[in-house]
Design a protein around this nucleic acid. Structure first.
Lengths: 194, 194
DNA sequence: TCTAGGGTTGACCGCATGGTTAAACCGGAA
DNA sequence: TTCCGGTTTAACCATGCGGTCAACCCTAGA
């Protein structure tokens, strides 16, 4: 399964070869079909694992009682840490959802189980209270979430492009991320102010 | 070529089939190989066209004499408008750069031709002046660019996920984008303040 | 009207790749 | 020692797909 993760993340569902996964796992090709019934099922299992790796943490954070700025800061911290360790993760997920959007809805529904609505409702309540108190620029939970996730994830998704455009090698990108980690929470917090 | 664009954007390089492109163009499969020498070349041509569609505008804007807030606003406007019309574009490009990062550097270099450095230098100068004047939170050109592009592009790249999570259909997403278009420039402008 | 040459096609080829299967292996219980 | 279920493998199969080719079509120029 871990070998499948690695190969699917690196090559994408269409680019991945069952033989390569088998080799990566040090195992015969037929064994994959014995355990997982064909490439389709395996791909779905991998994709589901990746969604589970990405979504629950942020949902839980957003549904908590923390302040909006603190929620943003923790979400950013969590993604920066995880995506630094898994470079192919965001590009893989984005490629999958654009090229196979069909299987997404049920998977998301299965993962969330109503906790999304909970998190959204919590955010909406916080936002309404703070807008009323004059300590927040008017917005919606959807926009707040989109902003935080965009800023946290996007640079990792286009990492090869940023490296090419800015002329960075691996260490250079790490430096960029470190710099970003120091600034981002403040940028969001200021953006939230009225 | 336009048929190739459509199929490659929708399916990705690995998922695209030469026969499907031929059918979409109302043409025989062999004709594709007659004009473009094989799938590899065709894929590269499509990818290059998409980069040319995405990069030059923002580079020119960033290299101009506009203020930082105005640059951000125009870039956001430009991307929102274009990506609304081409839903598969960001997901396609991100999938490509993560799964075939090899061919990227030369393409980017070919497109830019030194204009990137020019834009970056301009931004750095503006930022230094405004930080010195106390009208900007300290940052770098790279972070500024990353923030603007993230906020503008990312929601389109994960559009199917947002639809699933927020429970939106096509019109619902259009509404989300409209809402976003009204808020985003202000969010960035406030984030830039010291 | 003839011809040359680019444009276009259906038919075909070879191969990579997902999937199958029958046999071999292996450890434990009787 | 033998049997048996679960596991593992090498060899094989079917087919989808990129790519090629020889023939045909069509138009412009002589």
């Amino acid at each position: 399964m871990e070998a499948a993760d690695r190969v699917f993340l690196r090559r994408g569902t269409h680019g991945a070869r069952m033989a390569e996964i088998a080799a990566e796992a040090g195992v015969n090709k037929a064994l994959l079909h014995y355990y997982y019934r064909g490439k389709e099922k395996l791909a779905e299992a991998v994709f589901l694992r990746m969604l589970r790796r990405l979504l629950p943490a942020v949902v839980e954070t957003m549904a908590s009682d923390l302040g909006l700025e603190e929620k943003a800061a923790r979400t950013i911290e969590s993604y920066v840490e995880q995506l630094s360790r898994h470079p192919y993760l965001p590009g893989y997920v984005i490629g999958e959802v654009t090229h196979h959007p069909d299987r997404l809805p049920q998977l998301v529904a299965g993962i969330a189980g109503g906790r999304f609505e909970q998190a959204i409702a919590k955010l909406e309540a916080q936002i309404a209270a703070r807008v009323a108190a004059g300590t927040l620029a008017p917005t919606s939970a959807r926009q707040f979430l989109a902003n935080v996730l965009s800023l946290a994830i996007f640079p990792f998704a286009v990492r090869p492009m940023l490296q090419a455009v800015f002329g960075l090698d691996g260490d250079g990108f790490a430096g960029f991320v470190a710099e970003r980690r120091g600034e981002l929470a403040g940028f969001v917090a200021r953006g939230l102010r009225p």
